[in-house]
């Protein structure tokens, strides 16, 4: 049993958990968390694709892709969270 197999399945499980969470969660923040789980899961798969059994060095391209994916995801998260904050403030005004 090699690390790529173990963590590949881990990543897939994390993606599936995030996917189900994004579909069924009711809390707005929780859905953002769920999407972030999906992104980490996809990252696992790409990093596993880059792994070579030591002493071979890993393939650098998927590493670069995942770094790009991380920055893209934090951008998307920030926009979703800004929407949540704004919407919450407006709904609080409606309640008042």
């Amino acid at each position: 049993m090699t690390p790529d197999l173990i963590y590949g399945v881990t990543g897939i499980a994390v993606f599936a958990i995030g996917l189900v969470g994004a579909i069924v969660a009711q809390n707005r923040l929780r859905r953002v968390l769920a999407l972030k789980l999906c992104s980490v899961g996809a990252g696992f798969v790409l990093i596993v694709a880059a792994w070579r059994s030591p002493p071979d060095a890993p393939d650098p391209v998927p590493h670069a892709l995942v770094i790009t994916g991380i920055v893209v995801m934090v951008s998307a998260t920030a926009v979703a969270l800004a929407l949540i904050r704004r919407l919450h403030s407006l709904e609080a005004e409606d309640d008042a």
Partner: peptide, 11 residues
């Protein structure tokens, strides 16, 4: 985002 992440896992 979900659509894009499904695409990413496909990649």
């Amino acid at each position: 985002i979900l659509g894009a992440l499904l695409f990413l896992l496909g990649v």
